[in-house]
Simulated assay, not measured.
Amino acid sequence: MRANFLMAAALAAALPAGATEVVGYYPGWKHQSYPVSSVDASKLTMALYAFVDLCWDGKHGNADPSVNKVEPCQDARNGALAWRNEAEDGANLRALVALKRQHPQFKVVISVGGWDWSNRFSNVAASAPARANFIASSLQTMRRYGLDGVDLDWEFPGEVGVPCVAGEVCARPEDRQNFITWARELRTAFDAAGKQDGKRYSITIAAGGNASYTGDGVWVKQLAQSLDWINLMAYDYHAPWEKSSNHHAALYDDVTGSVQRYLHAGVAPQQLVLGVPFYGYGWKGCPPGPNGDGLRQPCESGVTDGVNGSNSYSYGMVLQRGDGYRRYRDAAAHAPYMYNAAERVWIAYEDPQSLREKAAYIKQQGLRGAMFWELSVDDERRQMLNTLSEAMRP
Rank of each mutant, 00 (worst) to 15 (best):
G294I: 14
E350Y: 02
P352Y: 01
Y339W: 12
Q364V: 12
D253A: 13
V276Q: 06
G289Y: 05
Y281E: 04
A360W: 08
E300R: 07
R321D: 00
Y281V: 06
R261P: 01
S312M: 07
Y349G: 05
Q320M: 10
V303C: 04
D293F: 01
Y339K: 12
I362D: 03
G324W: 10
Y252M: 09
H248R: 09
G316W: 12
D323K: 14
S301G: 13
Y252A: 08
N340Q: 08
N311L: 04
Y262P: 01
K284W: 02
Q364D: 15
E343C: 03
L274E: 02
S354Y: 12
G324Q: 13
H248L: 11
A332I: 06
A333Q: 13
F278H: 04
G289Q: 07
Y279D: 10
G285W: 02
D323A: 15
V345G: 01
Y252V: 14
W346T: 06
Y361N: 03
Y339M: 13
Q270N: 09
I347S: 05
Y337H: 07
A249F: 12
Y349P: 05
V307G: 01
P288S: 10
S354M: 11
G302F: 08
V276E: 04
D351F: 07
Y252G: 01
G324Y: 12
G316V: 15
R329F: 15
G324R: 14
Q353M: 05
K358G: 01
T304Q: 00
G292P: 06
N308F: 05
G292F: 02
V273N: 06
N340L: 14
S354Q: 13
A268M: 12
A332T: 05
D305V: 00
P336F: 05
G282A: 12
Q260A: 11
T256P: 01
F278D: 01
Q297Y: 01
S354P: 07
A250Q: 08
N311W: 10
Y279M: 13
E350N: 11
R326V: 14
G257T: 14
V303W: 08
V267H: 08
R329Y: 14
Y349I: 06
S354I: 15
S310H: 05
L272H: 09
G266H: 03
E350T: 14
R296F: 03
W346P: 04
A333G: 00
A348H: 00
I347W: 06
G294V: 11
R327S: 11
R356W: 01
A333R: 11
G366F: 05
D330S: 07
L272I: 15
G366T: 10
A341T: 08
G280E: 04
Y349C: 08
R326L: 10
R261E: 02
P290I: 06
A249W: 13
R296K: 11
P336S: 03
P287C: 00
L251Y: 04
P298L: 04
S301C: 11
G282D: 05
A250K: 06
M317K: 12
D253L: 09
R326A: 09
P288G: 07
S258K: 10
L272P: 10
N308V: 11
G285H: 03
G282I: 08
N340C: 11
V276T: 09
